[in-house]
Design a protein around this nucleic acid. Sequence first.
DNA 1: TAAAAGATATGACAAATGTCACTTACATTC
DNA 2: GAATGTAAGTGACATTTGTCATATCTTTTA
Lengths: 208, 208
Amino acid sequence: MKVVIIDDDKLVSMSLKTILESATGITVEAVGNDGTEALGLYEKHRPDVLLMDIRMEHMTGVEAARKVIAEYPDAKILFLTTFSDDEYIIEALEIGVRGYILKQDFEGLIPALEAVQQGQTVFGGKIVGKLPGLLQESLSFDYEAKGITQKEYDIIQLVAQGLSNKEIAAKTFLSEGTIRNYLSTVLEKLDLRDRTQLAVFYYQNGGR
Amino acid sequence: MKVVIIDDDKLVSMSLKTILESATGITVEAVGNDGTEALGLYEKHRPDVLLMDIRMEHMTGVEAARKVIAEYPDAKILFLTTFSDDEYIIEALEIGVRGYILKQDFEGLIPALEAVQQGQTVFGGKIVGKLPGLLQESLSFDYEAKGITQKEYDIIQLVAQGLSNKEIAAKTFLSEGTIRNYLSTVLEKLDLRDRTQLAVFYYQNGGR
DNA sequence: TAAAAGATATGACAAATGTCACTTACATTC
DNA sequence: GAATGTAAGTGACATTTGTCATATCTTTTA
């Protein structure tokens, strides 16, 4: 199996190289230390698996992977992650990356590579458990950025549960007229027409 | 690595046994041919990985896995699937199963087992690509079962896009009054009060 | 063929909704 | 202390919405 490694931490990439070459049947064809090298090295060596850090300086692993897959849709890319890389995971999944494995997990590395070579997708450790939550977050809308206050947001949530103004008033101990006023400004801020559009907006932007 | 195999097709389980035992470091501790045997064999042998068919006669692999994991939350279960087992996949994911691999994929089997033993999760072939779609379907509501007709459902979808009755009428070439009537019966059938609750219902039951 | 069922439509009505102009009360700031 | 800002409220108004009774026309069924 031919592997190309890309990681901007030379200590990591060298350790990986050592580990991999001690295994039979694996050749490390090249080691790059920047996402910008990914496409070039992939083209030159056509490795079975491209093992790449997801968080790097000049170009993130995700961007690099996107370029490689654009040219070679069947490229098998395995990301190295730490626990703090949540933000990239969904994006990477959409691109069609073949897996994520924790940097710390030396024992798991070789079986993971082999599984990926066989066309499978591998998720290290507890990453799978995080997926449902991440999928939602990735869609979530930044109401604060549109100038929606906390109280307004509370009302949005109640509308998005299908409550009438009267019911919302009862729940919040405000008058029905006040609810109407709040709702009116919310609709304007979000450029919507009525409460139904608000509920639709809510659910199409990550609400549940 | 100790493995227990469960598959109600003896031809399959025996082939698997042969393949696995030809590999160094793998012992097949037991072979069961029914989901009901899963928990017993797991308790007796405590394998590193439980390799189980997902579709079986008396008890599905999913049910069997649920029982095993209830007793042994860290149990590593790898499912054998065919392309037609979509319906079980989401359910199995929720239980905390460690992967799915296609029965046909003999080469991938051993690396997959090793990756699972190392604590990773493995998805064979194109299963990952199906996940987003399946996640949605798993939530989807059976409008037909509530007596919703096709035309009514069309209107539900338009309401769930935030359109007014007038707009829906224009789109469907029906009169606004007719739309109101349709909507009225839809609300009754689903036991809802107004269009906003309908939109909420739609999105909370698998719509997008 | 007659009756039943289905699709579409109308008009009337009450309730809910969204907008607007304006007020009151309280706290913060200058 | 006056000015400003914010939170909450009121009343009026036009629209939209949901319900209901009823009508017309077509298709299916008995």
